[in-house]
Design a protein around this nucleic acid. Sequence first.
DNA 1: AATTACACTTGCAAAAAACAAGAGGAATCA
DNA 2: TGATTCCTCTTGTTTTTTGCAAGTGTAATT
Lengths: 163, 163
Amino acid sequence: MLSFCKYIFAPYIAPMTKTDRAHWNGCPTRYAAGIVGDKWCFLLMRDVLLHGKRTYSEFLSGPEGISTNILADRLSRLERNGLLDRRTDPRKGSRVCYFPTRKLRDLLPALLAMMVWSVKYDADTEAPDSFAASFVADPAATIAWYEADIDRVDQDILGAPAE
Amino acid sequence: MLSFCKYIFAPYIAPMTKTDRAHWNGCPTRYAAGIVGDKWCFLLMRDVLLHGKRTYSEFLSGPEGISTNILADRLSRLERNGLLDRRTDPRKGSRVCYFPTRKLRDLLPALLAMMVWSVKYDADTEAPDSFAASFVADPAATIAWYEADIDRVDQDILGAPAE
DNA sequence: AATTACACTTGCAAAAAACAAGAGGAATCA
DNA sequence: TGATTCCTCTTGTTTTTTGCAAGTGTAATT
């Protein structure tokens, strides 16, 4: 590792000119914050990766009550950033499906780590202890298990004959 | 694990009444989103955990250019949520220090996982490959290494004799 | 041909964020 | 002691984003 400031820290915060600020990345935290550092993106990630939701109306029906314009905005933003793959639903041509890309799937470890943290600190959590325990015990296996579910959902939609 | 919907997914999204919505947690993703699902909180976490920043003016001087009212708001929010411990600086009584709590430190795994993801997908990243490699190879050791740095920063401030 | 389902879009009021300037309190200095 | 400086916020004001309600366009259904 490399030294930074007074102590040894991640060294990738470069100085930047004022004009660069808006679009410059290079810092991994800022890159992530720019893409998922938003409550709604965060919850949509959960819906896609963990709850098997794929359509506009499924997202809309969530308990948080996202409004339609915000949902449309976030979906297009996530698509633009390469996290979602937008296609018409083969089961019904007037419907649209948003599939998770590999890039989104690769956020599973971070998402699950965040959930383990929540389970530890949220007194009102409804998640079972077994969830956190299994991820801590064997992260790779837990992730593989979630990925298999994601595959099952997507294949169910894409592999189905048109009605 | 338990079954959910059509497939096997995390089962902890309970139905909720309209009045509950604003403050209800129980879902780990929503809990995390409510606390760190914000660009500025995210970046402040980075400054405290990875860059050794502790004071208002240090946060203010970051390359992202946070405005003063937003900074004050986020600091008090993070303190209210038990992520930061606000104390006067023993080195100088007119200054305030914000120390990371255990609860904040426990976000390191999630934060680092997010950074590994960014390094993989951000073409402009300035983080060295060694960073991601070491975390993937041995997460626990990498986290311990960052924690030691955090200890060093805090002890340097708290243990220093008043000037 | 008319109706329904679905995925958005638009317009408007309300809330939040960005920006600029300044207040107040401790330490330092004349 | 009183003026000065440093530092942590406040307080307006402007700009942007959000939330809500209603409407539009396209594809299936009847």
